[in-house]
Amino acid sequence: MNTFPMTIHGADKLRDELNYLKSVRRPEIVAAIAEAREHGDLKENAEYHAAREEQGFCEGRIQEIEGKLGNAQIIDITKIPNNHKVIFGVTVTLLNIDTDEEVAYQIVGDDEADIKQNRISVNSPIARALIGKEVDSEVEVKTPGGVVEYEILAVEHK
């Protein structure tokens, strides 16, 4: 079975969602099904069918999260010595050599990626180009708009 990397933050978010689904959402759906059953004929009972469908989605998501957590290799970047190399979980500060713009990204698992929060997937082109490189290195990243050159300014374990 393949494991995949996940930050502590990502695992905590999945555990929170799992807890919500099991302790709040699942009982709400069971109650909705029971209430819809009281309305009589189940063949033409839209509330009953909608609640059953919602139950299927909820149970599917619970299984999906349990599977992800079961296959996750949870990495606490704060426990790994910082040797100024880009690895999974670090926050890397880059300088775009052409535009002189600075940007910082945390390299995270696929499920955790959120560009609005500057969290990029370890499988993204930019992360793949950065992994293994050191501070002060220059890196070329192939993007849909062409090649972008970055200088790695900092690597933080936070």
Rank of each mutant, 00 (worst) to 15 (best):
T3E: 08
Y150F: 14
I152V: 04
G10V: 05
K133T: 08
P27L: 05
R25W: 01
K13G: 04
A31V: 07
R37A: 13
A129P: 00
E140W: 01
Q106G: 11
K13M: 10
H49L: 13
H9D: 10
I87D: 15
P125Q: 08
P144H: 01
S137P: 05
L14T: 02
E134R: 11
E38Q: 13
L69A: 09
A72S: 09
E47T: 07
K22S: 04
V139S: 03
D41H: 11
N45S: 12
Q63S: 13
Q63H: 08
F4S: 04
T7H: 15
I75T: 12
L69Y: 15
V139N: 01
E44C: 06
R25E: 15
E134Q: 12
A51I: 03
E54F: 00
G145W: 00
G146S: 01
I29D: 02
K79V: 06
R128T: 01
E66L: 07
D16K: 09
A51Q: 06
Y20W: 07
I33G: 10
F57T: 15
N19H: 12
A113S: 12
E149T: 10
N82Y: 12
I107E: 07
E151Y: 02
E44A: 09
D98C: 03
Q55D: 07
S124P: 02
H157F: 11
